[in-house]
């Protein structure tokens, strides 16, 4: 045996509730994050990711208390992202019990933040989330919840963030997000083969076969999904049982 492929449910949090959209829009309520987290742990989730998608200055305090509540309840690693703009933000979520932070827009605005966090908390603590969309035959990086083009190419940016100290990349294809048509295999393959840190594939999971495809056809270390798990159409345990039959190592 060896290291296992990770199945990671993602909870997009807005005003303390879990929400889910399609192609980053049309948000629907999907439940209480703490209850969902506990359900996922029972189903065999390997990690949890919490993305605060409406993080604003005045909501930071609410977030810290939610992170504390989640940290007290769960016994697997968890990452918090959304509106992490400074070392002080990192310190607040780590002290509340998060294991890793995920940067997105703030890393593009201030790439040095990656190095600062890695220097203080270690590379393993810094996840850089890359939202990418296929435009004019290129995988481009978008920020601001997918609304703002950056002019960066996903592969170049991925290499750059690893150089700066990122310990993991969370790669979301905006074209695939919420469509249930499968992960974006080509860009996931390119990036996971080009960088020396774990890459988590995200966006598009709609069936257990999609997880098989991403693990067989790319070097992704994990697959992240939200919608299919929230509404109970498929359980994490179903995915894992299936992957075992395909000789993919899972916990």
């Amino acid at each position: 045996m060896a290291i296992k492929k990770r199945i990671i449910p993602c909870l997009d949090i807005k005003d303390g509730r879990t929400v889910k959209g399609v192609n980053f829009c049309d948000l629907r309520d999907a439940g209480d994050p703490v209850e969902l987290a506990k359900k996922y742990i029972e189903e065999g989730a390997d990690e949890l990711v919490f993305l605060d998608i409406a993080a604003t200055e005045e909501k930071r305090k609410t977030r810290a208390s939610l992170v504390r509540k989640i940290a007290a309840e769960i016994n697997i690693p968890f990452t918090v992202g959304g509106g992490i703009n400074s070392l002080a933000d990192v310190s607040a979520v780590i002290q509340s019990g998060a294991d890793k932070v995920s940067l997105n827009s703030s890393a593009v605005r201030n790439p040095y933040l990656i190095s600062e966090i890695a220097g203080q908390y270690g590379n393993q603590c810094v996840v850089v989330a890359i939202d990418t969309k296929y435009v004019n035959n290129e995988w481009c990086v978008f920020v601001g919840g997918g609304k703002i083009p950056t002019g960066l190419m996903a592969l170049d940016w991925a290499k750059k963030v690893v150089e700066l100290g990122a310990g993991e990349i969370l790669l979301t294809s905006m074209n695939n997000d919420g469509t249930r048509s499968g992960f974006a295999l080509d860009i996931t393959r390119q990036i996971s083969e080009a960088v020396g840190v774990p890459v988590i594939a995200s966006g598009g999971a709609g069936s257990k076969e999609h997880f098989r495809d991403v693990f067989q056809q790319t070097k992704a270390s994990g697959g992240l999904a939200a919608g299919i798990f929230h509404y109970g159409e498929i359980s994490i345990q179903d995915v894992k049982n299936y992957l075992k039959t395909q000789n993919i190592l899972v916990r």
């Binding site: 045996m1 290291i3 296992k4 492929k5 390997d46 020396g196 840190v197 774990p198 270390s221 994990g222």
Partner: peptide, 27 residues
């Protein structure tokens, strides 16, 4: 290979007081 090792892995030949009721199948 990918460094850091980040994720779940099993133990080989876990022994002693710390590993009562733990097997090589546990991650």
């Amino acid at each position: 290979d990918t460094v850091p090792q980040m994720g779940w892995n099993n133990l080989l030949n876990p022994r002693g007081e710390l590993f009562l009721n733990v097997t090589e199948r546990d991650d």
